[in-house]
């Protein structure tokens, strides 16, 4: 009798412990951590670059692609002085974006989420784009 009682107590406390552990796990899943050092570094690099890119989004020279990147859409919309450097600028931005998606997935312990993270970002970049900016659709470029 005493033994069984003791056993129940042990099981009960184990369950309690597990449910505590479990709820912290739920919280961890409810919010993705985006404050890892790697993500912060990518973010500030992109923030700095945006000063250069913003005018090109507005002129339609570059646009947002379906896969969460950016691409040169119409190089003739660029001032002559910017035409040379645009490909390097776009490539730098895209490498940051790729790294960002990878880090958000890996930083939360699931590198395999990278593709889904990219898809979510792709939609949100376009949703948050200013009117007049171009984004890629199935049929080609569209103006927001």
């Amino acid at each position: 009798m005493f033994r069984e009682n003791n056993m129940q107590k042990i099981i009960f406390s184990l369950l309690l412990l597990l449910s505590l552990f479990n709820s912290s796990w739920v919280n961890a899943a409810a919010d993705l951590d985006v404050n890892t050092p790697a993500i912060s570094a990518i973010k500030s690099s992109m923030q700095n670059r945006h000063a250069q890119l913003a005018g090109h989004y507005a002129s339609g020279a570059i646009g947002l692609t379906k896969d969460g990147l950016i691409a040169v859409r119409d190089a003739t919309a660029l001032p002559l002085k910017d035409r040379q450097g645009i490909n390097a600028l776009v490539a730098a931005e895209n490498s940051d974006r790729n790294a960002l998606y990878k880090e958000v997935a890996a930083g939360n312990g699931h590198p395999e989420w990278q593709g889904e993270v990219r898809n979510i970002f792709a939609g949100r970049w376009i949703d948050k784009a200013q009117s007049g900016w171009y984004f890629q659709q199935d049929g080609g470029w569209a103006k927001k």
């Binding site: 899943a29 993705l32 989420w113 979510i120 970002f121 949100r124 948050k128």
Partner: peptide
Amino acid sequence: INIYFPAAAAEKAADKIIDEVWQL
């Protein structure tokens, strides 16, 4: 909980990052 991709959380995370990068 850990098998499925947390789409809502990812959207929240994306919004936060985009707001910062684009200073929205």
